[in-house]
Simulated scan of single mutants.
Amino acid sequence: MLIEVIADTLSDALIAQEAGAGRIELVTGLAEGGLTPGYGVIERVCKELKIPVNVMIRPHSRGFCYSEEDIEVMIQDIDICKKLGAAGVVFGVLTHNNQVHIDYLKRLIDAADGMDITFHRAFDEADDQFAAMEIIKQYPQISRILTSGGERSAANAAARLRKLNELTADSHLKIMAGAGLSIENITAFLDEVPVTEVHFGTGVRFQSSYDHQIDPERVRKIIKIIGA
């Protein structure tokens, strides 16, 4: 079981690593759902951490439909992340009809050549998640989909996430459950949805809020609970 933890500072990333996290999703703009962090933060975190660091590639918080100029910026950000030592990148692109934007997705995948790729929670806004999953599944470069099953909390979407997990079981693609998972609900959730990667944000922070730093004891408790 791999635990991915969201971090927006070097200190948070170091705390998560020390507590036993398996991977960092590095972002800024947590209140806006995560945006591409500054290059200085990316460089320092990638340099100082021993665990993989995957960087959010999201130029603005106005949804997941992008202009040509946005895509060009995202490609440039991916290129810089590669040079700064990031293990992977995290992105998602949709059309105005809330379907996977295949052309833009291909361009971002090409830019990330050799890097680990997560298709992020843009997936949760897809008009048909199962159709979106089948499209994403066609690209072996994409390692996983981060999803809450379309609900505010993954804990409220166990049936859908279990089905998505079953449909990807015979492929390279993993379902990484995230959003709303915590010490209190992770055991019951994993009993219903046997994913191998889980993603934590507020669930591992003091006062369960992005206004506070990561609580290493919460990370350790989750690792102990799930036997990671």
Rank of each mutant, 00 (worst) to 15 (best):
R121T: 00
R121M: 08
F123M: 14
E125T: 05
A126W: 03
D127K: 14
D128L: 04
F130N: 02
F130K: 10
F130P: 11
F130Y: 07
A131G: 04
A131R: 01
A131E: 15
A131T: 12
A132L: 05
M133W: 10
E134M: 02
I135E: 13
I136H: 06
K137S: 05
Y139N: 09
P140R: 04
Q141W: 03
S143I: 12
R144E: 01
R144N: 04
L146N: 01
T147N: 04
G149S: 10
G149M: 05
G150F: 02
G150E: 01
E151C: 10
E151S: 13
S153V: 12
A154I: 03
A154C: 02
A154P: 00
A155F: 15
N156M: 13
A157L: 04
A158E: 10
A158Y: 02
A159K: 15
L161R: 03
L161A: 07
R162C: 14
R162P: 05
K163T: 12
L164F: 10
N165A: 04
N165K: 02
E166P: 00
E166L: 11
L167G: 01
L167C: 08
A169M: 08
S171H: 09
S171Q: 06
H172L: 10
H172A: 07
L173W: 00
L173H: 06
K174F: 00
K174R: 15
K174T: 04
I175H: 10
I175K: 05
A177W: 04
A177I: 10
G178I: 11
G180M: 02
L181S: 12
S182A: 15
S182C: 11
E184G: 09
N185E: 00
N185R: 08
A188D: 14
A188R: 07
F189S: 12
F189Y: 13
L190H: 05
L190C: 13
E192M: 15
V193C: 07
V193P: 04
T196Q: 08
E197H: 15
V198R: 07
H199Q: 03
G201K: 05
G201L: 07
